[in-house]
Amino acid sequence: MAETVGKDAWLRGEGQDADIVISTRVRLARNVEGFALKAKLAGDEEVALLQHLRQRIGKVKLAEKQQFVDLKPLDDVERLMLVERHLISLDHANADSERGVIHDDQGSIALMLNEEDHLRLQVLGSGMCAEEVFDRAFAIEDELQGVVEFAYHSRYGYLTSCPTNVGTGMRLSVMLHLPGLAFTKQIDKVFNAVARMNLAVRGFYGEGTKALSDLYQISNQVTLGKTPEELLNDVRGVIPVILRWEREVRNQVMKADRVGLEDKVWRALGALRSARTMSSSEAFEQLSHVRLGVHCELIPDLTIATLNELFLLCQPGHLQTVVCGGKAIEPRKRDIVRAELLRSRLGGR
């Protein structure tokens, strides 16, 4: 496993506008006609549903390599790894039901089985790639329709456990790194812009309740009454505006206070290279500053791929797996291990 850790395609820092857009993801919620929905699915039926989906989806070639992971026998750290790779949701990890995930070896495609809906199909990519993930997700969905009958209502569209997902069942999200707007306290511009478009913005969470700094996810709020293409265009329409603001702010800061910015960025790198204990939220904050430094060409010899990998490795599941061999360790010890990892990866002492 060690050689594949941190190598998922969405972490490469490639693709369009990758200086700001971390990743793009589309998720489709579908249920199988005939089976009760999650809330009324008896234990025996959970098993039958899982078998049904595994057997049917097994006939479809999703990618070069694909595998089924049964979540029930995994321990907490292993499940957390999958959450951090964005292959399953936190709810899916913490549930107690018969459930699993089918994913490819690139970490680009994941089909959660028996989540809140029978099937949650997800395609994830690096940088701004809304059309690409959209096309790929619907191509896979089309293949699946050849083997599974999805619950569909002539008036309400694809039926879901929760009426907030009904209709297209589609959620398109773009993860943005906006340190410039955050640094200059203009992030409310983003909130206002997306509110007008009926989109949602959310923070990105780490351990506990602390937000990981400067990461924002923009996604469509509604799933009903618009075609998937219209929803795609809504999300896609607002992103260039936000990218322009973020770049303008970065340029302004570089002109007006280059030393101030350099100071902030190099201090962050200094902390990462020297600290003896580091919480995940501090690590994310410092990595966020360094990431900005790399994009403003203030820090040579560091790549976005390395930083993205460290973002991942600093999270509890990966940290405990990669550094501690899968053994669960207490948070205080984790902070020490995390600091060691960062020092060694970033050439500290």
Binding site: F150, S154, Y158, V166, V222, P228, E230
Partner: peptide, 13 residues
């Protein structure tokens, strides 16, 4: 929730 009551889009084959 959605500002709509009806699905818009292709029906499944």
């Amino acid at each position: 929730v959605h500002g709509a009551r009806e699905h818009k889009g292709e029906a499944p084959r």
